[in-house]
Every structure is written in structure tokens, then in C-alpha cells.
């Protein structure tokens, strides 16, 4: 029953987020959609994904969109939908095809989990998701951090926009000062926890970024500048560590990102810690770096 309610509200929020009469309403509904999506994932036995979705999907994406709303031109003409009926029909037909082709996969057994299980002992961590992310499929994660950096470089080459930042609301200011140390502690805990259970570099990095964005919006953090050496190091250190490990294992070890099992825990921890710093710094800049922050 709960799942049915969540599912129906999710679809309703999705439709509302697209068709709401004001852009502000759209963004609010999309934010609510992200939070409810996190609940749905927690219901599907994926608590660490729920954490990541709440921090990234709802929190940071929401901040990003609200930030852009300030800068984007107002909707001059209310959205007028063209051919809504035919679009709805086409989408319904595609949906029917999709569901029919997806249904059989529910009964199939994936061959991958049995391959992960026996190799967990050699992976260096006790939590399968972290083992997959940083050991078995470390290559994907390396590229993912590269994608994050690429997006930042893409944002960096665009000209800055200058909009006066709104004055912080005093209640928000007080709360953000209270929340900030809690966020740092929880972020550190999530990072450490990732080797044994739900948590990891991405959740921790996203949470820290959310905290930094909150403080930046309230003008508590000092100004961020691309010319600051510390900032550049923070942004690059994750990819640099990961690449160093990859090249070292390729030249001296058994191959690209195949860790020697005696060192795998230490290597994974080093990569995760530096990746957390880089993810936090990059996400903060992606959300907040529209002004002069990224100009050198």
C-alpha cells in the first residue's frame, strides 16, 4: 500500500513539475520529487543510493535550478502546449512497449551478483557496492570523476554572470552555522562507513558540497577563487590519485587498477578520501561557480 502511494505521488509530482503554471512551482515540485524518489529507493533496499539521491538529486540539483531561476528570464508567455494529445498518445504507446519488454527481466536472475560474492574477500572492503565501485569496476569510477571535472571545465569556459546575491535570511544564517559542523561530521562518518556498509565517497562528497553551498549562499564562507592553489588542488587531487594508482598498478602490478590484495584496503581508502575532497569541491563549484569564482 505504501509503495503504491509513493509510486502514484511520484508520477503526479513528475507531471506537476513539468506543467506547473509557474517556474518556481515547477522547481519546488521537482525538489519534492527528488526527496520522494530517495524514499522509494530506501524502500527498495538501497539506503546508500537514497542518501546519494537526497543529497545530489534533490539537494544539489535543486540548489542549482533555483540558482538558475534567479538568473533566467521570466517566462514571458505562459507555456502553451502544442499537440498535447498526440504527444500523450505517442508517449503512452512507448510506455506500453517499454513495460512489456521490461516485465520479463524481473524474473531473470542476473549473473553478476554471484560473481561479486566469492571475490569480496580479496577486494579490501566488506561492502559490495563499494567493492564494485572502487575495485571490480574502478575504471568506471575513474572515468566518472573525469566526467565531473570535464563538466567543471565546461562551466569554466562560459562567461560569468553577475547577479547580486540575495541577502541571507537571519534564521537560515543561524541554522546553517549550526548545521555546518554536523554535516562535516556526518560526511566523514559516511566516508569511513563506506568500507563496511551503506555510505562512501560519493555520498560523503555530495553532503559536504551541500553544506558548502549552504554556507556560500549565506555568505559565511569566504570567497572562492580559481586562482587559490588550495581550491585547484582540491578539485584535481581525486583524479590525480586515482590515475597515479591506475598507472602504478598497470606498470608495476597485475594490470590496470588491479590492486595487490595486501594493499587494496589502503589504496581504496586513499582513493576514496581524495575523491571525496574532489567531489565536494567540484560539486560546490558546479552549483556556485557562476560568477567570478572560476575565472583565473
Amino acid at each position: 500500500m505504501v509503495d503504491l502511494a509513493i509510486g502514484l505521488i511520484l508520477v503526479a509530482l513528475a507531471i506537476g513539475a513539468l506543467l506547473s503554471s509557474t517556474l518556481f512551482g515547477s522547481l519546488t515540485l521537482f525538489f519534492a520529487f527528488g526527496m520522494l524518489m530517495a524514499v522509494a529507493w530506501a524502500r527498495l533496499h538501497a539506503p546508500d543510493l537514497a542518501l546519494a539521491e537526497a543529497a545530489i538529486g534533490a539537494g544539489l540539483t535543486g540548489a542549482l535550478l533555483f540558482n538558475a531561476l534567479n538568473k533566467s528570464p521570466p517566462e514571458v508567455i505562459k507555456e502553451r502546449l502544442r499537440h498535447p494529445l498526440s504527444v500523450a498518445l505517442v508517449c503512452a504507446a512507448i510506455l506500453a512497449l517499454l513495460v512489456v519488454s521490461l516485465l520479463p527481466s524481473l524474473d531473470q536472475v542476473s549473473p553478476l551478483p554471484p560473481m561479486v560474492g566469492p571475490r569480496m574477500d580479496a577486494s579490501g572492503v566488506d561492502y559490495p557496492v563499494t567493492a564494485v565501485l572502487l575495485n571490480f569496476r574502478g575504471w568506471d569510477t575513474l572515468l566518472e570523476i573525469a566526467v565531473l571535472l570535464l563538466a567543471l571545465l565546461g562551466v569554466k569556459v562560459l562567461l560569468p554572470t553577475h547577479t547580486p546575491a540575495p541577502q541571507p535570511w537571519s534564521l537560515l544564517l543561524g541554522w546553517s552555522k549550526t548545521l555546518a559542523p554536523v554535516i562535516v561530521v556526518v560526511g566523514g562518518y559516511l566516508l569511513w562507513r563506506g568500507s563496511r556498509g551503506a555510505g562512501g565517497a560519493f555520498q560523503a562528497g555530495a553532503l559536504l558540497a551541500a553544506g558548502a553551498v549552504m554556507l556560500r549562499l549565506n555568505h559565511v564562507l569566504p570567497e572562492i577563487r580559481w586562482s587559490q592553489l588550495l581550491l585547484r588542488i582540491s578539485v584535481l587531487i581525486g583524479l590525480a590519485t586515482f590515475l597515479t594508482v591506475a598507472i602504478a598498478t598497470a606498470s608495476f602490478g597485475d594490470g590496470w587498477l588491479t590492486y595487490p590484495s595486501a594493499y587494496s584496503k589502503a589504496l581504496i581508502l586513499a582513493i576514496e578520501t581524495t575523491a571525496t575532497i574532489s567531489i565536494a569541491a567540484t560539486l560546490t563549484l558546479l552549483v556556485e561557480g557562476e560568477g567570478d569564482e572560476l575565472q583565473s
Binding site: 533496499h45 538501497a46 546508500d48 536472475v109 542476473s110 559490495p128 568506471d140 569510477t141 566518472e144
Partner: peptide, 27 residues
């Protein structure tokens, strides 16, 4: 995520894929 929950414990490979996807999506 729903497909990952087919098996118990959930499929870590699909869940890791979603973590990767989330970060690429926000980028």
C-alpha cells in the same frame, strides 16, 4: 534500483551503476 532489488541481497553492480549515473547526471 527495482531490478537490483530482484535478488536478496540486492545486486551491487546495478546499485553501483546508479551511484555513477547520479554523479554524471548532476554534471
Amino acid at each position: 534500483v527495482a531490478l537490483a532489488a530482484r535478488s536478496s541481497p540486492p545486486d551491487p553492480v546495478l546499485q553501483a551503476l546508479v551511484v555513477t549515473g547520479l554523479v554524471v547526471a548532476i554534471s
